[in-house]
Amino acid sequence: MLTVDRYRCGYCGACVGVCPEMALELVETWIEISPECVECGRCTKICPTGALELSDKTEART
């Protein structure tokens, strides 16, 4: 499952820009994750603050 550490997040929206599923949204100072997330891990890799994480050792699907 994709989680965001909102205490780490810099709310820049870079993750939203790379999400292939439109599963993320930047609202003011936090990121919302919708059920469309396929846990590809693209956002976790490019996050400038390292605020996004795929937990439960889910393997990247793409």
């Binding site: 810099g10 976790t44 890799k45 490019i46 400038p48 603050t49 390292g50 605020a51 996004l52 994480e53």
Partner: peptide, 14 residues
């Protein structure tokens, strides 16, 4: 700036 394809989580700030 770090190119996304060469980035690790949190790399820019670090």
């Amino acid at each position: 700036g770090v190119l996304g394809s060469r980035c690790q989580p949190g790399a820019p700030v670090r």
